[in-house]
Amino acid sequence: MSYTFDFYSVTQNLRPLLEGLIVTLELTLVANAIGLTLGFVVALLSMSRLAVFRVPAMLFVEFFRCTPAVVQIIWFFYCVPILFNVFLGSITMAVLALGLNLTAFNAEAYRAAIQAVPREQMDAGIALGLNPLQRVLYIVLPTALRNSVPVLMTNGIGIFQQSALVALVAVPDLMYAGKSLATETYRPIETFTVVAFIYFAISFPISQIVGYFERRREAAAS
């Protein structure tokens, strides 16, 4: 191979990548806030005895779980303005697409955790005179959240990585900054190697934390 690696042009232009990383982290944090909150609500609705709540929630989950994230992002950017005459900023659209995608996956994690809540705890809440909302807030939510932490964190890492897809619709995230820098420097291999390392440097420590929580949960269950 006659190719000569030269990272100088990339290392001397890290500022655009860092600015893109900030946008990526903002997208990830807001999308996770949406996914963690709405995911629990959708999980409760999908378990409702009333079909008017259960069916739409299940359709929502299946739609976002069974279609590619890139299609969802592009649909939000190009179809929502045309169909609903709603024009939002590119970052706002990206947050909505990523947040709703994460909501669907988190809803399934919450649902499995809710179903694992011991019946005895619910009976104890009834015996204490807690109403349904109080049982959800003080018994179901804390237990489900604790049991689903590893999956929620894994989903959070996934949405951080999938946020690179918003570069396709010109959101100035890390991937978009990498594409622009690669075009300017004519060094795509070096540029995307650095971009990949940045994604890895953030994802890997979080994945180790997820593994730690999983080992703790397994040890507590044994």
Rank of each mutant, 00 (worst) to 15 (best):
S90I: 13
L17A: 05
V23W: 09
A94I: 10
N101F: 05
F213C: 04
L27E: 04
I159F: 08
L83Q: 13
L100V: 10
Y138T: 01
A112T: 12
L59H: 09
A144H: 07
Y199D: 01
F40G: 00
R146Q: 00
V136D: 09
V42A: 01
V86L: 14
V52S: 12
A144T: 04
S222T: 15
L44S: 06
I159Q: 05
L141G: 03
F84I: 03
I91W: 08
R15M: 04
P16D: 12
A104G: 06
M153Q: 07
A31H: 06
L168G: 07
A170Y: 13
N131F: 14
A164E: 12
A112F: 05
S163E: 06
A43W: 05
A167L: 06
L133D: 13
L181N: 03
S9C: 09
S180W: 14
V71E: 10
G39K: 09
R65P: 01
G156E: 02
A182M: 01
A109R: 08
L88G: 02
A182K: 02
L36I: 12
F197D: 03
I126K: 09
W75D: 01
F40Q: 02
Q161H: 14
E120F: 09
I114A: 00
D6Q: 11
V52C: 10
L18V: 00
A107M: 07
Q208E: 11
N106C: 07
A144C: 05
G211H: 12
I139M: 00
V86T: 13
I157G: 07
T183I: 08
A33S: 06
S48R: 12
I189Y: 15
Q208W: 13
L130K: 14
L102I: 11
V171Y: 09
L29D: 14
T28P: 11
L14W: 15
D173Q: 11
T154L: 00
F192E: 01
A124M: 01
S163L: 04
D173K: 09
P16T: 07
V23I: 12
E214F: 06
R15L: 03
E120L: 06
I157W: 13
M93R: 09
C66A: 07
C79G: 10
R15Y: 14
I139D: 04
L38T: 03
V71L: 10
I198C: 02
L128V: 03
V71I: 07
I73M: 08
G20A: 02
G99S: 11
F40N: 01
I114N: 00
L181M: 01
Y176N: 11
V61T: 05
S207P: 02
A127D: 15
P16W: 13
M58K: 15
V149G: 01
T92D: 04
T24M: 05
Y186F: 10
E120G: 13
L137G: 04
